[in-house]
Design a binder for these strands. Structure first.
Length: 282
DNA sequence: CGGCTGTTTCCTGATT
DNA sequence: TAATCAGGAAACAGCC
């Protein structure tokens, strides 16, 4: 018996509150829905994993979560975080959104007109524009009541766009998008290898966690293993993630040709079945 | 509901 | 000694 524990293995720890992969799109649930007096600085606690991201060991190199910075000072990464939050919280249909249009800094985002939002995200753009303007004008008290806010957005947008409701808001969680234009930089890269790839391709988010050893060959090195695990854990809303466990998942990719073995510690290589990492094929 | 996929968790043992 | 690697085994979540 290799693994040793057999079917009778019991959980050595209390049952986890939410197993990995059980990530829900609903941010305003459970006790997190209402943080008393959630002021701007407190808000990250109310967001899934926000606090852990803020405390990411990469420290100074990494910016804090988007909620702790005024929109005009957002980095591209903050913009993505905000976009992801909006998709999650307001159940926006990611299929409407051309994510490449939002590959901009906060300053650029703030200078975008409503028309440009609509161009970038259709009817969802109306919502996003409204949300952004509210954050800019009201600061983060805007989020103090998620349900109210949602209703407000709905009202506001449907005033100008009567059928926005059915065509943009989804009734259940967002699905992974299949539009090729943004598949690589997907906000919801649900697979670990895609998450790793996107991190390698996004210097803004990478914070020196991963680096290329040989860009052409697809060889990369995990520089900050613990930070990588934390980030992945945050993505999966699992604060018990460790590099040990993450690397086990990476090793499974050897079987499927997503990754190839490299005989050096913390070094991996994209395999023939991984796509989207090559410079000339982006 | 069952099967499948992609992890997550845990483990033993080896290597750096 | 600690971190990491290598995989087996089983549990689990989400999807079809």
């Amino acid at each position: 018996m290799e693994g040793g524990q057999g079917p009778s293995r019991t959980h050595p720890h209390p049952p986890p509150p939410a197993r990995a992969g059980a990530a829900s799109n609903s941010w305003a649930r459970d006790e997190d829905a209402d943080v008393p007096g959630a002021a701007f600085g407190d808000l990250p606690r109310a967001l899934p994993g926000a606090s852990s991201l803020t405390s990411l060991s990469s420290g100074a190199a990494c910016d804090s979560y988007w909620t702790s910075v005024h929109p005009e000072y957002w980095t591209k990464r903050h913009v993505w975080e905000w976009l992801q939050f909006c998709c999650d919280q307001y159940k926006l249909d990611t299929n409407c959104i051309s994510f490449c249009h939002f590959n901009v800094s906060g300053l650029q985002l703030c200078s975008m007109t409503q028309e440009e939002f609509v161009e970038a995200a259709g009817l969802c753009g109306e919502y996003l524009y409204f949300i952004l303007q509210n954050i800019r004008s009201q600061g983060y008290s805007f989020f103090s009541d998620a349900e109210e806010t949602k209703a407000g957005i709905k009202d506001s947008v449907t005033h100008s766009v009567p059928d926005a409701d059915s065509s943009c808001l989804k009734t259940s969680g967002i699905k992974s998008q299949d539009c090729p234009s943004h598949s690589r930089t997907s906000l919801q890269s649900s697979h670990l290898w895609e998450f790793v790839r996107d991190l390698l391709l996004s210097p803004e988010e990478n914070c020196g966690i991963l680096e290329w050893e040989d860009r052409e060959q697809g060889i990369f090195r995990v520089v900050k293993s613990e930070a990588l695990a934390k980030m992945w854990g945050q993505r999966k809303k699992n604060d018990r993630m460790t590099y040990e466990k993450l690397s086990r998942a990476l090793r499974y990719y050897y079987k499927t040709g997503i990754l190839e073995r490299v005989d050096r510690r913390l070094v991996y290589k994209f395999g023939k079945n991984a796509h989207g990492w090559q410079e000339d094929k982006l």
